[in-house]
Design a protein around this nucleic acid. Structure first.
Lengths: 178, 178
DNA sequence: TTCGATGTGTCACCTGGCGACATGATAGTC
DNA sequence: GACTATCATGTCGCCAGGTGACACATCGAA
């Protein structure tokens, strides 16, 4: 709904009242559904990654954390970006700094939880710094995948890109350099 | 100046008029110095990385891109975070989503330029995706360093953390998995 | 029917941010 | 020393995002 308006006339140029009116409600009501104008863009997309944390805990304990992230994120983003509007949404986000910022805010929350989930895996003995490195590196891959996917006008194979990214980037666990 | 106020009473609780008044100017004048309220926090910090791009071009051509990033960022962040207020600033940013978002916006610009600079290095034949992976992975390390440094109350050795991060994370250049 | 919960509209308000214009200081020229 | 262009700043008014308080309606349970 709101995304159509944003895509047509731009994010900043679309007021909350416009969106609300188009949806047959009041500005005040809009803010009862969405905490901010930005969040209307992420409507229906699970960015907090409830499932991700659970999935991490469910992976076999003898799997390395990097591979674990790889498998979980592969499943997760396939599910997320099955949407029709994915390309338009990504383009919109890339073109709108405020949206990129908001996405990052959500991701920050998400990363904290993922980082903790990694540390909590049975048998894992990760220090917080390494857990952050792993988590941040994973989002680095995710971001690169999104960019490349948008660059290809949505034609690239997202899972393949993700796999490639996870193969090209690795994270060592031993914190001592040899 | 503004950071003191933010640190004392919180970012949202400090209005632009407060800051302006404390600085002996008008609200309107404040916005002539800073494009947004957030930017007052980053006062004096070079986030656009003018120097980084130049430094990348100046590194020896036979150096791998990951090592190149490592060396350049090592120098860069030593310069940046020599400031007294660095810890307070990082804490403030971590506690204020809006600031984290704004920082990320700046970083996005920065990453685009760094990614291009990597591709433009003499002798480098990086595809855009790999260049993005390298750049994003580097910021992943930077972010983890900042978090860890804040976690240690500013006692950790930032350059050492950066080195460790760059050793633990690597990025392969060959895009084919073997 | 009555009651309470839930959803929505209305109104008023604060704040960040911008555009337009006025004013004052400052520096440079004749 | 008077004149003027320039720049910084103040003043005013406006828009839009976001919140709190309150009223009203609808609907299901008792």
């Amino acid at each position: 709904m709101a995304i159509d308006l944003f895509a047509r006339q731009g994010f900043d140029e679309t007021t909350v009242e416009d969106i609300a009116q188009a949806a047959g409600m009041t500005k005040r009501s809009f803010f009862r559904y969405f905490p901010t104008k930005e969040d209307a863009v992420f409507e229906g997309i699970d960015l907090t990654g409830e499932s991700v944390v659970a999935d991490i805990a469910a992976r076999p304990a003898d799997e390395g954390p990097w591979e674990c992230l790889h498998q979980v994120l592969r499943a997760w983003q396939e599910e997320i970006h099955a949407s029709e509007q994915a390309l338009a949404t990504i383009r919109l986000i890339e073109a709108t700094p405020a949206l990129a910022g908001r996405l990052h805010q959500r991701r920050t929350e998400w990363r904290r939880r993922v980082s903790n989930a990694l540390q909590d895996r049975p048998g894992a003995s990760l220090d917080p710094y390494t857990a952050d490195l792993l988590t941040n590196a994973a989002t680095a891959v995710l971001d690169a995948v999104s960019s490349q996917w948008a660059r290809s006008d949505g034609n690239a194979d997202r899972p393949a890109l993700l796999d490639q990214g996870f193969y090209q980037v690795h994270v060592d666990l031993n914190s001592r350099q040899e």
